[in-house]
Deep mutational scan, measured.
Amino acid sequence: EEERTFTNEEEARKAKKEAEKRGLRVTVTKDGTTWRVRIG
């Protein structure tokens, strides 16, 4: 499991799409101005 943080919503969405392409489970949460993308 890996967690990545982004300040840019577009980049967070891109990371989510890429992980889904690899067949991984992805959770995206917004924490104030930060987007957290949890993969795995």
Rank of each mutant, 00 (worst) to 15 (best):
A12K: 01
E3M: 08
E20G: 02
R4E: 06
T5V: 14
F6K: 01
K16Q: 15
T29F: 11
R22N: 08
K30V: 09
A15V: 08
E10H: 10
R13M: 15
T5W: 14
T27D: 04
A15H: 07
E11D: 13
T33V: 08
V28L: 14
K16R: 08
N8H: 05
V26E: 00
G23H: 05
E9K: 06
G23L: 02
E9N: 03
V28H: 00
R36C: 10
K21F: 07
A19P: 00
K21D: 13
R13W: 14
W35L: 06
T27E: 08
E20V: 04
R13N: 13
A19H: 04
T7S: 09
I39S: 03
R38D: 06
D31M: 06
A12V: 05
A12L: 04
R4W: 15
E20N: 04
R38H: 11
A15I: 06
A12P: 01
R22G: 04
G32A: 03
G40R: 10
T5G: 03
E1P: 12
E3P: 03
I39G: 01
K30F: 15
N8L: 05
G32Y: 01
E1C: 15
R4Q: 12
R38S: 11
W35M: 04
N8M: 05
T5D: 06
N8R: 06
T29Q: 06
R13A: 10
I39A: 03
R4K: 10
I39H: 02
K14P: 01
T33L: 12
E11R: 02
T27G: 02
N8S: 13
G32H: 02
T29I: 13
E3W: 10
L24A: 05
G40K: 10
K30A: 07
W35E: 13
G40H: 14
K17R: 13
E18M: 08
E11S: 06
E10T: 08
K17W: 12
V28W: 02
T34R: 13
F6N: 01
E3I: 14
V28Q: 00
W35V: 14
E1W: 15
T34A: 09
K16D: 01
G23D: 02
E2A: 08
E20K: 04
T27L: 07
W35N: 10
E18W: 10
A15K: 03
A15R: 02
V28C: 11
N8F: 03
R22T: 04
K14V: 10
K21E: 13
K21M: 14
A19Y: 13
E11P: 01
K17N: 12
T27S: 09
G32P: 00
G32Q: 04
E10P: 05
V26A: 12
G32T: 02
T34K: 12
I39E: 03
T27I: 10
R4P: 04
E20W: 04
E20R: 04
E3N: 06
G23I: 00
T7L: 09
N8E: 06
A15Y: 15
E18A: 08
E11A: 09
K30L: 09
T7C: 13
F6H: 01
E11L: 05
V26D: 00
R38W: 09
A15E: 05
T27Y: 08
R36N: 05
K14M: 11
T5M: 10
V37H: 01
K21R: 11
E9A: 08
K17H: 12
V37I: 07
K17P: 00
R25K: 10
N8D: 10
V37P: 06
R38M: 11
E10Y: 11
K14L: 12
T33Q: 13
D31Q: 07
E18Q: 07
G40L: 14
E2L: 13
D31Y: 06
E20C: 09
W35I: 15
V28Y: 03
A12F: 06
N8Y: 04
W35D: 12
G23N: 03
W35R: 12
A15S: 04
R38A: 10
G40A: 12
N8W: 03
R25Q: 10
V37W: 00
G23T: 01
V28R: 00
K21A: 13
V26Y: 01
E11G: 05
E18K: 04
R36L: 13
